[in-house]
């Protein structure tokens, strides 16, 4: 079909008008977001804060894992959480009840957080208060395995939760999200004996199919919590982050 007049003659071509030109641009569509994310990351590096973007489907236990993490670590590590949900302050309230600072972003109908939303939140939610900085900031993204993967927030690490009440083939179904993960947490692992459909080995195999070496670890954050591997991973991330950024600061 002719693209100019819409007729069906296959070779019909109109001469290009003299005032019509095609310009090569070659810029990334996410450039504006990525630029803002870069600013956020610089800010996080200045305050010496390790920032972890937590993503998963709704209901896989992100908030509960953070509640347990607060109980385990808040006495030795200063933690804060930025919560992304379409509506309500519920999750931020749950975390404040654990004695840590939490800020809720209500995204309205938006299915993901972006770097601008996080930037705006940081104006109302400073990471340094009275000379005391935040060691770890968790950004709990909107529960969604599709959209959040496309938006850099300025985080240092992406963690994706896969709960045992979901299918163990989720990585194959949502490759973009799981490829973005630096760690996959298999949550609700205490339910494994009851979940015939979920096998940790199959979840790992599904993840390997994406051509990534991403590590996995199991957590249970319910009545009988077992989050030792997660806490150990966090400690190690914090240590290597401090080393890396400590050196960067002294070199500058």
């Amino acid at each position: 079909m002719c693209e100019t007049c819409g007729c069906s003659i296959p070779d019909h071509n109109h001469p290009t008008p003299a005032d019509e030109h095609t310009v090569e641009v070659l810029t990334g569509l996410m450039d504006a977001n990525d630029h803002a994310a870069g600013h956020n990351r610089e800010h996080f590096n200045r305050t010496g804060t390790l920032v972890i973007n937590l993503m998963s489907s709704p209901g896989s236990g992100k908030t509960q894992l953070l509640e347990r993490t607060a109980q385990a670590m808040k006495d030795r590590v200063t933690m804060a959480v930025i919560e992304g949900d379409l509506e309500t302050e519920n999750d931020a309230r749950r975390l404040r009840e654990q004695g840590i600072r939490a800020h809720q972003i209500a995204t309205g109908s938006a299915c993901h957080l972006d770097a601008h939303l996080v930037h705006k939140a940081l104006h109302d939610f400073p990471l340094e208060i009275d000379g005391q900085t935040t060691d770890i900031l968790f950004i709990e993204n909107v529960g969604n395995l599709v959209c959040p993967a496309a938006f850099d927030l300025g985080q240092h690490v992406n963690v994706v939760l896969l709960s045992t009440t979901e299918g163990d083939d989720k990585p194959a179904k949502y490759p973009v999200m799981f490829r973005a993960a630096d760690l996959v947490v298999i949550s609700k692992a205490d339910l494994l004996p009851y979940m015939d459909g979920f096998k940790v080995e199959r979840a790992e195999q599904s993840l390997r199919g994406l051509g990534v070496e991403t590590p996995t670890l199991n957590t249970a954050a319910g009545r009988e919590p077992d989050i030792g591997a997660w806490i150990a991973w966090l400690e190690q991330q914090l240590e290597s982050h401090r080393q890396h950024h400590g050196q960067a600061a002294s070199a500058a």
């Binding site: 019509e20 310009v23 996410m30 496309a150």
Partner: peptide, 11 residues
């Protein structure tokens, strides 16, 4: 995820 080309009119 790239914007490659834009055709501009009136230039």
């Amino acid at each position: 995820l790239l914007l490659a080309q834009v055709e501009l009119r009136g230039v």
